[in-house]
Design a protein around this nucleic acid. Sequence first.
RNA 1: GCCUGGGUGGCGGAAUAGGUAGACGCAAGGGACUUAAAAUCCCUCGGUCCUUAGUGGCUGUGCGAGUUCAAUUCUCGCCCUAGGCACCA
Length: 863
Amino acid sequence: MEEKYDPKIVEAKWQSCWDKSGLFKVSEESDKKKYYLLEMFPYPSGKIHMGHVRNYTIGDVVARYKRMQGFNVLHPMGWDAFGMPAENAAISNKTHPAIWTYQNIDYMRMQLKRMGFSYDWDREIATCRPEYYRWEQWLFLKMLERGNAYRKESFVNWCDSCQTVLANEQVEAGMCWRCGKPVRQKKLWQWFFKITDYAQDLLAHCDMLPGWPEKVTTMQKNWIGKSIGAQISFPVENMDENIPVFTTRQDTVFGATFMCLAPEHPLVIRLSKGTGEEKNVLEFVERISLQERSNRAIENYEKEGVFTGAWCINPVNERRMPIYTANFALMEYGTGAVMSVPAHDQRDFDFAKKYDMEIVVVVKPDDSDLDPATMTEAYTGDGIMINSGQFNGIDNRRALDDIAAFLEEKGIGKKTVSFRLRDWGISRQRYWGAPIPVVHCDICGIVPVNEKDLPILLPEDAALLEGGQSPLPLLDYFTKTKCPGCGREDARRETDTMDTFVESSWYFERYCSPKFEDGLFDKKAVDYWMPVDQYIGGVEHAILHLLYSRYFTRVLKDLGLVEYKEPFTRLLTQGMVCKETVSCPEHGYLFPEEAEGEAEDRTCKKCGKEVLIGRVEKMSKSKRNVIDPNYLLDKYGADTTRLFCLFAAPPERDLEWNEQGVEGGYRFLTRVWRLVRAHMDVIRDAGSFCGEPGQLKGDLRELYKKTHHTICRVTNDIEERFHFNTAISAVMELVNMMYGIELKKDVKEEADVVRFAIESIVLLLSPIVPHFSEEIWGSLGYESSVLLAPWPVYRKDALVKDDILIVVQVNGKLRSKFSVSPDSGDDTIKERALSDDNVKKFINNKQVKKVIVVKRKLVNIVT
RNA sequence: GCCUGGGUGGCGGAAUAGGUAGACGCAAGGGACUUAAAAUCCCUCGGUCCUUAGUGGCUGUGCGAGUUCAAUUCUCGCCCUAGGCACCA
């Protein structure tokens, strides 16, 4: 142990030592209980950012802690390596996506190693490798076979000028990000996974995930969006056609006065044919389809529609209802048709007023009447039904089921459940993704590739095209193939690739047997490790990634490949890493190091102008409010970086980055370092004390008890709630106490007690600052890693206080305190409280009405 | 608009089966050491009041009510803020 703590030397030494000894490798062959700890794997974008540092630090602490607790811990890491940024980088720097990706992976792996994370690197996976995606393609074939995957026509964002499909994030306020021209909706045949088949099950199990934050399950529930209602058929006048609608308010069906169809509804054009409205309707549909997405971004989207010229009949009262097509009706939800009840729905009310349509009240409040002529807004509350035939006088809520039954009986409708969740569109008209393993044949249609022909390799030598469109359709050697069905030579391979969320929906299973060559995974390994005991990641994945993974797990279970339904037993969503933004009136956003000065008085290094300090926001490249982890590693080292990430805030909360806080963390480590060195001569050959506290006296006894108390606090803080900030505080308190104690060197147990305290500090800190702890552990004479040492255990008898502090209140206000021995009876404590001078002053000879004694804590005297 | 979190010193944050509000750290101020500085160590640190400077009084956890001997903690109503969803029929 050197005189001065030098993180550079210490960290390099232990990282190479861990690497050589293979300390972090694990296998299923173990007598210990398994624990699978997983952090969300990163996209290899170039270098790691503070969000990764925080996420992986939290995970590493838990992994190391669980190992010391005696678990066989699986803690893997890999790369979510397919995706668009690789293509963009390829276009702008003329490097191939594969080269760019693998270079990034190498660099980021090196960075993660510098952080000292305890990954079993033998299990590393990169989803862009054929060994990985071939099994994804295999699974796709199974899903196709089972009807989990299907093809349908659907809309994509399309830029006419770039001639390319755009992802949602490439559409900025309705315009193409590259050329700024308007984006329109284009219909393409695309692949989907039928996640809606599992909507009910996914929803129901949201309430069976006690280890998940309620916030996340709530978000998932809302996303799935179950509505219970009814489907009702409205016959079209003079036509052999029925329009089904979905409604949650079948109690208001007698008040439906018009109908609205989505502009994309297949009946719209047909209905308007020959009515004189046809031209109007065509124009409207065309205009809305162009506007669609761009206007969605704009608030207060104006509701509008046009009359189709056709009418339908309300099946419960034979009312003639005009059929409109309206921009607010969504083809993707329900049936794409809405029965409009203007009296009881605000949107329908506004629409009826705008187009002068009839309003019929069918639910009235208990204590007043409604007059359509004077209503200024829809009445959406509950009440008594009127104008509703045989249902008049019934409470509307209670009528819901009766009306559904009535509709069913009459053959015009039935009770139905509708979900907001839509099927998962997995087609991407992109290059850098896993090819979808099917072939198009003029004779056979869509034909799945033979299993033995997998993987369908993504050609890695394709040249990227300037506009961003996929080069795959242009590569004859890729697209031209023999039909697996009929053998014709002129079949064409599918050129869509899969959404990258597909890769991340099963990678956690692949980690269990990452090199397995005969299937997705080795079932034995998966049976042993899965499900993931603790998953950790950003809350931004609360819906899609987690929901898709839950869906995939259900598919795998139905395929008989796994035994569980839910992949992640416990979930921790860590908060964002934030920092204030700094902007210069001339140069815009600045990196923190581009401004000089302190706090509010900072100036731009380039032009000397005073800069504007903005609000604290999530670190992002675009706002430039980022701290480069490399800078921290160079200046303070990995341990200090880890310590600060954990100390500044509890994990689920946002963390505001502040360099002075980092200094404080570094100071603490040097403080511990010096403490150990100061005592080294005394404790080098001592044994760790483990006797009863009764054997000790005075300061030494206090220190011994405080050490046990600290072990207790740290263990609970980590085990029960992952509150590392308070765990670190507890150790700091112990360190502070040791600085305050003067050793006399005349008590024989002294060296042993001090050694026990120091060993405990090192063990408790070791998951947090592993290199630092290894170094001290070694200097205490241990030859094996601190990670292999058992987690310290506290003695219950050392937690018992020698005396307890009683606080005395008079009428609820604190007036005095005193210490008593823990075995004092309530009466003695009461006596003592009543005889206290300050207490007497406040009782002031008044009648004492009541004295409340809370055991071992407090006395409250009420006058 | 709807659904979730969250509002505590100058700052990050502690403390909730209701029982000493402000642990721990940062910043700030003072002191010790030093020729000096850095580093280190010690002390003070919510506001306010006092002819008694204390183990002192009053006040204080977004605002306003309520329950209770006692409320940061429970209930009701507001305000602010972050995130999610948003024409979902």
